[in-house]
Computed example of a mutant assay.
Amino acid sequence: MKWDPSKYAEFADYRSRPFFDLTGRIAAEEPRRVVDLGCGPGSLTAALVDRWPRARVTGLDSSAAMIAAASAASRPQNLDFEVGDIAAWTPPEDLDVLVSNAALQWLPGHQDLLRAWASALGSGAWLAFQVPGNFSAPSHVLMRRQAASSRWHSRLDGVLRHEDAVSEPADYLALLLEAGFDADAWETTYLHVLQGSDPVLEWVRGTGLRPVLAALEPQEASEFEREYAEALRHAYPAGPHGTVFPFRRIFCVARKR
């Protein structure tokens, strides 16, 4: 399954807002080392250098295409990018700030990873992450329903994650408190006003629809998209100012005692 940096960047303004809402709550003053897990094309990771210009900042992503895009841009000497598997990553000893924005939902059992990272982080270190909380929204429900239909079940069985892809805010809060952190958890539903033809389809093409498209042949993928787009138009009708697309996100920021 491949990531397309240009497709992901089409809604960059909307996708970047949760990152800044998340990192704005981190009160670290002079961190030595900052890591961004699931950094994507790197533009948001670069903002961490602006925030902490004396820190060593590293962005890590499993997509070679994303890291290639990140590495192609000019960057300061204290910023670097690496291809790597988040599930196999361990915090370095000097890590003071760990950030993950909209990545953990792709990792089954990421709650255990959070516990392991929390245990490895030193006293005073910060852990901040954001995950989408919209798996019960029409965009995802309709996708799963279509994938489970008689037409697509044999091709797409087991491809899509379900409602348990992420935990609820209270569950993350409890996990972090039990791990020895002072923690804050909250949720926000953004009301994105999207423009253009089938804008919700264009949005999910860059993220949640990727596993489906990767599992199908091109002609099948086009057929699936046509059917799915029609359902999305009914669920998210266009209005006089655009198409309103509600998007719930879950945030946690914590500091180790």
Rank of each mutant, 00 (worst) to 15 (best):
K2H: 09
W3H: 08
D4R: 12
P5Y: 05
S6C: 12
K7M: 10
Y8N: 01
Y8R: 11
F11G: 07
F11S: 09
A12I: 13
R15K: 13
R17E: 13
G24E: 15
I26Y: 07
P31A: 12
L37D: 04
G38I: 01
C39Q: 09
C39H: 08
G40D: 02
P41F: 05
A46P: 01
A47H: 13
A47W: 03
R51P: 10
P53H: 02
A55V: 02
A55T: 09
G59W: 02
A64V: 09
A68S: 13
A70P: 01
N78L: 09
G84K: 03
A87D: 04
A88Y: 03
W89E: 07
T90Q: 14
E93Q: 14
D96G: 14
L98D: 06
H110E: 03
Q111R: 15
L113E: 06
L114S: 09
R115V: 05
A116H: 14
S119W: 13
A120Q: 09
S123T: 13
G124T: 10
L127W: 10
V131L: 07
N134P: 00
S136N: 15
V141P: 04
R144Y: 01
R144V: 03
A147Q: 14
S149G: 11
S149T: 05
R151F: 01
L156A: 00
G158M: 06
R161I: 03
R161Y: 02
H162Q: 15
D164Q: 14
L173R: 15
L173M: 07
F181H: 12
D182Q: 08
D184F: 00
T188R: 15
L191C: 12
S197T: 15
D198I: 05
P199K: 14
V200A: 08
V200Q: 06
E202P: 00
W203Y: 09
V204T: 11
G206N: 02
L209W: 00
R210V: 09
A214L: 13
A214D: 15
P218F: 08
S222Q: 15
A229E: 13
A231H: 13
L232P: 01
P237K: 13
A238K: 13
G242Q: 13
V244H: 05
I250W: 00
C252L: 14
C252T: 07
R255I: 11
K256C: 05
R257M: 05
